[in-house]
């Protein structure tokens, strides 16, 4: 008896009366300990009034500027996040030949076509946030700041594939000649 009550006490410490992340709950009807936000409520930090930053829109139009300061750090962050979240389909150059496309997903348009070169940067933010065509929204997976970093990096990718010869650094010009 002593031994069995000892084991119970030990178990009670191992599995305490608290929820770990995503643990199932017998208390709520839907079986989730994780509660969804009540519809129609706004939590702290969710007052997303800055339409430029949160929606990529300025005066009802797609923003053509970034609401964040561009820095080497931002672009490197964008590159890292692009390679994690976007490259499976868009591939690391943005041509749309990622591994998942090779396995049958509909090929996304290349970022290096004229239509997308001309499109305001807010478009990329909007697509990451709300999805587009067969692409799902990434809003729950990529925080707002990172979405802008990715949008900025897409612009870098576009430039990397479409640059005038005389805009290249002297070093690269010499290599090409």
């Amino acid at each position: 008896m002593l031994a069995s009550s000892g084991c119970e006490l030990r178990q009670a410490m191992y599995n305490q009366e608290k929820y770990e992340p995503l643990e199932a709950s017998a208390f709520f009807d839907d079986g989730l300990s994780f509660r969804n936000q009540v519809t129609g409520t706004v939590a702290r930090g969710q007052m997303m009034l800055d339409t430029h930053y949160y929606q990529g829109m300025v005066d009802g139009q797609l923003a053509s500027t970034l609401p964040v300061t561009v820095s080497q750090e931002l672009l490197e962050r964008g590159q890292e996040r692009f390679n994690i979240f976007c490259s499976p389909c868009h591939d690391q150059t943005g041509s749309g030949n990622g591994m998942i496309v090779k396995r049958g997903l509909k090929q996304p348009p290349s970022f290096h076509q004229q239509r997308l070169r001309d499109i305001p940067v807010g478009h990329f933010y909007d697509v990451i946030t709300n999805g587009f065509g067969v692409m799902y929204s990434y809003a729950s997976r990529i925080p707002v700041e990172d979405r802008w970093a990715i949008a900025a990096y897409i612009k870098v990718l576009q430039l990397s594939q479409n640059v005038e010869f005389d805009q290249l650094p002297a070093e690269d010009q010499r290599q090409l000649q």
Binding site: E20, P21, L22, I84, F85, P88, I100, R103, G104, L105, K106, V134, M135, Y136, S140, R141, I142
Partner: peptide, 28 residues
């Protein structure tokens, strides 16, 4: 990190919601 999205910022690495699976598997 494509699926375990919170591993860099939280104690819990995150188990992806079904939405993440369906991002590809609604098509493949």
């Amino acid at each position: 990190r494509y699926c375990h999205t919170t591993v860099e910022v939280s104690a819990f690495a995150g188990v992806p919601p079904t939405e993440t699976c369906m991002t590809c598997h609604s098509q493949i």
